[in-house]
Design a protein around this nucleic acid. Sequence first.
DNA 1: CTGCATGCAAACCGTTTGCATCCCC
DNA 2: GGGGATGCAAACGGTTTGCATGCAG
Lengths: 139, 139
Amino acid sequence: MNAPTNMFRLTTQRQIILEELAKVRTHPTASELYDMVRKRLPRIGLGTVYRNLELMAENGMILKLEVGGTQKRFDATTDNHYHIRCTTCGKVDDIDVPVADSFIEKAGEASSYHILGHHVEFAGICPRCLNSRRTDSSY
Amino acid sequence: MNAPTNMFRLTTQRQIILEELAKVRTHPTASELYDMVRKRLPRIGLGTVYRNLELMAENGMILKLEVGGTQKRFDATTDNHYHIRCTTCGKVDDIDVPVADSFIEKAGEASSYHILGHHVEFAGICPRCLNSRRTDSSY
DNA sequence: CTGCATGCAAACCGTTTGCATCCCC
DNA sequence: GGGGATGCAAACGGTTTGCATGCAG
């Protein structure tokens, strides 16, 4: 048999979803991405976006971020890095805190699980939300 | 006015939900907890469980874990500690890796957010799932 | 021609909410 | 008696899925 053809086809939809995701640093949700993609492919279905994001995540082409909040978010940068989520507006940004690979080692010692990876999520309030909170004393 | 009465009443339902949650180390989902509570209060409604878990989380009596996976999980231990989630069966356990408070400091330097906290989640395969995988080479 | 991929819409599942009733203060 | 809490069921929002059609290889 020849070169494995089990790699999925790069259809127009897949290409554009990937392009739009790579364009932004904001880790959009599926429906945010849907809106972005729809500007270029008005007839695409939301199901197609979900299906392909799922597929690409399985293939390691993108990251599915299972962070807090109600919706899943997607990330075109696949190497491990940490995130910060605004507890007020829900936005998720990258944060430039060095990845602590030593964590994996410690986790291996501390647990009987077979460790696969780790993720750090900071919680905070983004500058924009901070600004609109001058009269609030709830933190 | 006298002592603030804005603390909610400790109804039977609330007490039992809290007790059942404190009993286990497994960070149950709302409906797992519902099943546990129902053994003692057969007529309790799922809505009541959700409502009270939400309330208790707001009051800092319990933790709402916004970890990966589709369902939220709850934790009666409120001090910061890290978790590990089995990517196969979805179970979430505590993991005894020391909390890196220095993270908060680094995050403050690295970001323009007002940092509130952080959470570390390890991913792995739990011993039980490892066992039922002898013939699998997918990792 | 054949099969994978798509668009569409309905189903699904976890969670939230409206409302009538209940119960504690 | 009054206000919060409950049980119940319906609504909700995000995600998944079934199916007929479309399109690339």
